[in-house]
Write a protein that binds this DNA or RNA. Structure first.
Lengths: 109, 109
DNA sequence: GACACGGTTATCGTAAATGATAACATACTC
DNA sequence: GAGTATGTTATCATTTACGATAACCGTGTC
């Protein structure tokens, strides 16, 4: 028998309703940060260069982008970041599906 | 000669690049608030009822929705509001048009 | 090894968002 | 007019995001 992989661990963890709830609630901020990094790199900017555009420091950019960050940024912060890398932020409100999720459904990340 | 109407005033004001910039920068938050109110009403909730769902006070809901408000809410605040009225918040980043705007173009609304 | 580059982390001070309470305005009903 | 419902505004305390500085970790280059 082999050692459990991280994938196995995640699969199992996501079956726990509590863990799953936290995972989903985190996902918005999580995906946001990944998105921001992608936009910055596509714009060919380092954190330091972007920081300069925003009149701030690279450490602050890092904090904002960092997945481990516990902060929930202000709307204006995200907007300014977006603008600095050449994008405009738009907010969409999509109706929540109230469908009970299939009990063995796993997010494919 | 008649008194200048508010519409005239606004039209003129928006020709000023500074004023216009401020107008545009405010518009995101402005539209957001209108959107939020619409979602709440569609859900058939009063501010007080929604406040209860969010474990807060109606005055705080009012502050968040109020167009005159100068605050830039946290992302999580908007997310929780959306969830409480049955919606999910999604962020979209659309490429900025760098086209120079027509010098006499006026926003309708 | 020394250096530069890109990013992370810790810390501290300040500014701003949020929580909470109360008083107020309007409109509507009895 | 008294009472109720909905939303607004002001104020204060608390929490948290953000600004700023510094030290650190790789990685690559010389």
């Amino acid at each position: 028998m082999t050692r459990p992989t991280f994938h196995d661990f995640k699969k199992k963890a996501l079956r726990d309703p509590g863990v799953r709830a936290e995972y989903e609630s985190l996902s918005a901020a999580y995906h946001l940060r990944k998105k921001l990094i992608g936009l910055r790199k596509k714009a060919g900017l380092t954190q330091e260069e972007l920081a300069k555009r925003l009149n701030t420091q690279k450490s602050n950019i890092s904090r904002l982008e960092n997945v481990n960050s516990k902060i929930s940024p202000k709307l204006s912060t995200i907007e300014e970041y977006a603008k600095a890398v050449g994008f405009k932020l738009e907010l969409d409100f999509v109706p929540q599906k109230t469908i009970k999720p299939h009990h063995n459904r796993i997010n494919s990340d």
